[in-house]
Simulated scan of single mutants.
Amino acid sequence: MRALLQIFASSLVVAVFSVLPGRAAAGYGVQPDGQSLPVTVNVIGTVATPATLDFVVYLDGLDRDPYVWVSDSLQMDGYGLPLGRLVGSCAPYELIPFGEPGKWVCRESTILMQPGRTYYWWLDFRRLDTGDYAGQQRVSGPFSFTLVPQAPPVEPPPVAPPPEVDTTSAVSTKTVLSAATLPSEDAFNGTVSVKQTTLTRLLYGTMKSLVTPRTLAIACWTQPDWESVLAAEGDQPSPGSSTVLGFWKPALPRWLHLAPATCGPVQELLDSGVATGKRAAALATVLHEAMHAYGIDGEARANCFAVQLVPFAGRKLGMSTTRAAYLGRLAVRYVRGHAPAGYWNFTSCRDGGRWDIDPARPNLG
């Protein structure tokens, strides 16, 4: 048991939240709680200011894995995940110090929130009480807040527009066939589309530990190139309420095509080794598209297998077993919480479900 406690204590989440001073008191949401928050509205009817809202929570040394969820509904499932539309969330590593002992802030964008609406938020965490090693899942909330539109500020007199500049030459014309001409690089900086060789090796090594691997080249596209590639495929970067983060094309079976919104967070993970929900989810996106290349059809099924492979990839990155498992847990919760319709199956993708690749241990909770 002592060895297990030492392993558990090595988790970075423990390192962050075990140093909180004060007497033990289970975590709880602080604010906002029932307030009406003034917002200004832009010309298209969405929130102009403030650009972000702060959700304050209290945590002590026995609280683990704190997640903040913001939704248009107060309904949640048995995991504490929103059943309504998710408009914001924070993983443990996205919380920032509030300035008072034990208090932390989830700073979330208002881009998905609408003026005049009431929203709900809550704190979802695990409580480690004395004698309870695994801990108990708890939820504080839901709490409500309302965005109240205010009169827009007086606009200054119009300013003459600058002379038009011919930007035709800067418009990307890239297609999936352009991937073969991309330079091979071991890192993606967001300014040049590349064939990301580090990710190719990571993916190959991850799959080799499980099945007969195949080499899949990975194209990391810049935003202009990504939009051009999707346009050539008859798609858009953000169709409807979802965002295209990557795709695999059967006609070019050896290539995975990834958005900068995927390659960027994965590169941050490769560079720093620090796990966050967004980085874990981005790595899961890479594995999701790889699942299609390996013959796994169905978006929900590919997502389920992908999040379970994240710990294997973490081990290939040199993480300890505990850290890799934590990376996988972040991937499960983030992907499950942000998956659009048809991309998650709660019945099949659960511990002991028919898509559980390792029923002997909990990995989908």
Rank of each mutant, 00 (worst) to 15 (best):
residue 7 I to K: 15
residue 7 I to L: 13
residue 8 F to M: 11
residue 9 A to D: 15
residue 11 S to F: 05
residue 20 L to K: 05
residue 25 A to L: 15
residue 25 A to H: 08
residue 26 A to T: 05
residue 31 Q to C: 02
residue 40 T to I: 04
residue 45 G to V: 07
residue 47 V to N: 11
residue 50 P to Q: 01
residue 50 P to C: 02
residue 54 D to G: 05
residue 57 V to E: 13
residue 62 L to I: 09
residue 64 R to V: 03
residue 65 D to V: 10
residue 66 P to E: 10
residue 68 V to I: 14
residue 69 W to I: 00
residue 79 Y to T: 01
residue 82 P to Y: 01
residue 82 P to Q: 01
residue 84 G to Y: 02
residue 90 C to P: 00
residue 91 A to L: 02
residue 98 F to A: 09
residue 100 E to N: 07
residue 104 W to S: 01
residue 105 V to A: 09
residue 110 T to I: 04
residue 115 P to C: 11
residue 116 G to A: 02
residue 121 W to V: 00
residue 128 L to M: 13
residue 128 L to A: 09
residue 134 A to K: 14
residue 149 P to W: 06
residue 152 P to N: 13
residue 152 P to W: 07
residue 152 P to R: 15
residue 153 P to I: 08
residue 155 E to F: 02
residue 157 P to N: 10
residue 158 P to N: 06
residue 158 P to E: 08
residue 164 E to N: 02
residue 165 V to I: 14
residue 167 T to E: 08
residue 171 V to C: 00
residue 171 V to I: 07
residue 172 S to M: 09
residue 177 L to H: 12
residue 181 T to R: 15
residue 182 L to K: 13
residue 184 S to K: 14
residue 185 E to P: 00
residue 186 D to R: 13
residue 187 A to G: 06
residue 187 A to N: 12
residue 195 K to Y: 02
residue 201 R to K: 10
residue 203 L to G: 04
residue 205 G to S: 06
residue 206 T to F: 05
residue 225 D to R: 04
residue 229 V to I: 11
residue 231 A to Y: 06
residue 235 D to K: 14
residue 235 D to T: 10
residue 238 S to Q: 14
residue 240 G to M: 11
residue 241 S to Q: 10
residue 245 L to Y: 13
residue 247 F to M: 09
residue 248 W to C: 04
residue 250 P to M: 08
residue 250 P to E: 11
residue 251 A to K: 11
residue 256 L to E: 12
residue 258 L to W: 02
residue 260 P to S: 06
residue 262 T to E: 13
residue 262 T to M: 07
residue 263 C to T: 08
residue 269 L to F: 06
residue 275 A to Y: 00
residue 275 A to W: 00
residue 275 A to T: 01
residue 278 K to N: 13
residue 279 R to G: 10
residue 294 Y to L: 06
residue 295 G to I: 06
residue 296 I to W: 02
residue 297 D to T: 14
residue 298 G to A: 08
residue 299 E to K: 12
residue 302 A to G: 05
residue 303 N to V: 06
residue 303 N to M: 12
residue 303 N to A: 09
residue 306 A to Q: 04
residue 310 V to K: 00
residue 311 P to G: 11
residue 314 G to K: 00
residue 314 G to A: 03
residue 315 R to K: 12
residue 319 M to Q: 04
residue 320 S to Y: 01
residue 323 R to N: 10
residue 326 Y to C: 06
residue 332 V to C: 01
residue 336 R to A: 07
residue 336 R to T: 08
residue 344 W to R: 07
residue 346 F to C: 02
residue 349 C to V: 08
residue 358 D to M: 12
